[in-house]
């Protein structure tokens, strides 16, 4: 049973990675409606599900997240070292706080909000240092972070029970 999850997890991860881009393009009219821009984070969602729903902690999530981050930088942005660091960082933090959490729908939702904020802020700061971003902090919070969290929470609510069922069944 263990081996099945080891195959399902990376396939789901890369499906999420490429769906992020495709869906962003298809729904660009509603996701990137100026001045708001909401960024899809299916990869992050999949990683967090893997960290918290996999009871035995035997998936190499940190390594896979680094690889997914590398592909993201490589294929989508062309600027290396941003998602490559951000995604493993978040997974590492989740692993650290997991023993202290009473796991249910609401706590996982909270963890997801915090993680979204960490990733978006990390990417914003990194791009700001390399002068790819020129907008200021208030614009970032209002026009990017807010809509991003809203959209991704909706996706979380839709996907939580199906993915949990998947993990329960495979276990």
């Amino acid at each position: 049973m263990k081996s099945r999850l080891r195959i399902i997890f990376p396939i789901g991860l890369f499906l999420a990675l490429f769906l992020d881009g495709s869906l962003s393009n298809v729904f660009a009219g509603s996701l990137f409606k100026y001045p708001y821009s909401s960024v899809l984070h299916l990869v992050l969602l999949w990683l967090i599900f893997a960290v918290f729903l996999d009871e035995r902690d035997d998936l190499p999530v940190v390594a896979w997240s680094a690889f997914a981050g590398l592909v993201f930088d490589w294929f989508y942005t062309g600027v290396f070292g941003v998602y490559l660091i951000a995604l493993p960082l978040v997974v590492y933090l989740c692993r650290q706080i997991k023993p202290w959490l009473d796991l249910n729908f609401l706590t996982l939702l909270m963890v997801y909000i915090i993680n979204l904020t960490i990733v978006e802020a990390f990417v914003y700061i990194w791009y700001m240092i390399s002068k790819i971003v020129t907008s200021n902090l208030a614009d970032f919070a209002v026009y990017t972070l807010g809509p991003t969290i809203a959209v991704n929470l909706a996706i979380f609510v839709i996907l939580y029970y199906p993915v949990r069922q998947l993990y329960l069944r495979v276990d």
Partner: peptide, 10 residues
Amino acid sequence: VLTRTPSSWM
């Protein structure tokens, strides 16, 4: 068009 970068900065 294959895909769009899922990022608000790029």
